[in-house]
Structure formats: structure tokens, C-alpha cells
Design a protein around this nucleic acid. Structure first.
Length: 224
DNA sequence: TCATTAAATTGTT
DNA sequence: AACAATTTAATGA
């Protein structure tokens, strides 16, 4: 299992920090392990920390009153999230659940704001991250209206491997087809078919509970 | 190490 | 949505 130091080494915002500031930031970050299926934070909880996925896989999602699940984003190892709520000083708007055993970094709100006030590199990182996320969500609306289900699954999958949001060299993700369905807004059956098509096209490799991306660029551009 | 079983996931209708 | 097949993980001989 990866460590907090692995994560910080991968996070580009740490690179321009003076050594003593980085040490202070590192000391302020708490690390907690969550087993698969447990809730990391719920809608309405105070946003007291900026969260990072050191290892594992997390989803941000919402449950309809009728109990249907919609997943807005899957966050694999290397990703930071919840900056939106921390920036506004408002409670979380969505639930976050560990999809498999996950190790989470919690940077206290005060530390987050200290970095925001003192580090240009940190601000640059946040701008880039917010911009990447905005692009992903605009893309989701576009794909939802314009593309066929195979292409939607392809892009949803590709979004998990955004090299800026999730700087992790691992081309695999351990996720069930059911969860991919929540992420892509498609039924499990549809995801199953789509994955087979994408596999035959040589873009991914499918194993039990595991998807390996062979051609990320091709996956992003796939349109049937 | 191997066999058995339950649980999770997948493939199909 | 329901069913059958497959894979994994856990258990104990």
C-alpha cells in the first residue's frame, strides 16, 4: 500500500514549496484507512479538510430519494478532491464512498488556506485542477447527448486516467462493471457490452473486477 | 497444498 | 430484471 510521502511526491503542488513549509504541511496531514464500501464523508458534513486518495478508489455520488445512485466522479490514487467545499467554507454537497480499500489523506482546512495565501504554485495547481474538472463535466454533458453508449463508457473510463488530476503511472483500475455503470450513466448490461467492444478494439483489457487501459488516447477519441 | 464453500462479478436472455 | 456461469477469497482438512 502506498504512503503519504508517495502521494506528496506525485503531487505537483509540493514541488515549489520551501522545504520547511512542506514539512509543516506534511505534519498537519492526517491519514485514515477506509475499507471498501464505507463512507468517507457525507452530504452535509462540515468540509474541514481537503482530501487526497493515497491508495484505492473513491467515488463522489448522490442518492436520489428513490434510492438510485449517480456517480459524478471516480477518484483513483493520486487525486485530490473536495477543494470546492473547502474554498467556500460550506458543507460537503455529496457523499464520498470508498469503492475498495482506500487510504485517504486529510489536509486541515487551515493548512489548505495557508497554502492558498502563500504559495503561487499551489494556486496554479488548483486552477489547473478546477479547469480539468470543468472540462470533464462539460464533456460529460456533451457525450451524454451526442455519443453512443460505447463511447460514453469509453470516455468515462478514460476520465479515470486524467494524467493531471491523477498522476499515477498505473494503467489499471480495480472496479466492477456495475460501478462503471453508475459512473457512465449506463446499465450494467450496457457497460458489459461496451467493454467487450472496447476490448476487441484493442483499447482495454478486461479481467475479473479489473480494467487495464492499453490505449488511453484511443479510448478518449473512441466514437464507435 | 488442496478441496469445499460462499460471495462477488460477469455474461446472457 | 432474472438467471447461470465464472472467478475470487476464506476456510479447514
Amino acid at each position: 500500500m502506498r504512503s503519504l510521502d508517495d502521494m506528496l511526491a506525485l503531487s505537483s503542488w509540493t514541488r515549489e514549496l520551501p522545504a520547511d513549509q512542506l514539512n509543516q504541511v506534511r505534519a498537519a496531514i492526517a491519514v485514515r484507512d477506509f475499507t471498501a464500501g464505507t463512507c468517507i464523508c457525507r452530504k452535509g458534513d462540515p468540509a474541514s479538510a481537503w482530501l487526497g486518495v493515497i491508495d484505492g478508489l473513491v467515488k463522489i455520488h448522490s442518492l436520489s430519494p428513490a434510492g438510485k445512485s449517480v456517480t459524478f466522479a471516480g477518484i483513483p490514487a493520486g487525486g485530490w478532491f473536495a477543494e470546492g467545499s473547502v474554498l467556500r467554507g460550506r458543507p460537503f454537497m455529496y457523499d464520498t464512498v470508498a469503492l475498495r480499500d482506500s487510504r485517504i489523506a486529510l489536509m486541515p482546512e487551515a493548512t489548505f488556506h495557508w497554502l492558498l495565501d502563500t504559495s503561487i504554485g499551489f494556486n496554479r495547481f488548483l486552477l489547473k485542477q478546477l479547469n480539468e474538472r470543468l472540462g470533464q463535466f462539460i464533456g460529460m454533458v456533451e457525450h451524454d447527448r451526442l455519443l453512443n453508449p460505447e463511447a460514453r463508457v469509453a470516455r468515462s473510463l478514460a476520465a479515470l486516467f486524467n494524467p493531471y488530476l491523477y498522476p499515477d503511472s498505473d494503467p489499471q483500475v480495480q472496479i466492477s462493471q456495475e460501478e462503471l455503470g453508475y459512473l457512465a450513466g449506463a446499465s450494467r448490461q450496457r457497460v458489459n457490452r461496451a467493454l467487450q467492444v472496447l476490448g476487441k478494439a484493442g483499447l482495454i483489457k478486461i479481467d475479473y473486477g479489473l480494467v487495464t487501459v492499453l490505449d488511453l488516447d484511443g479510448l478518449q477519441k473512441f466514437s464507435g
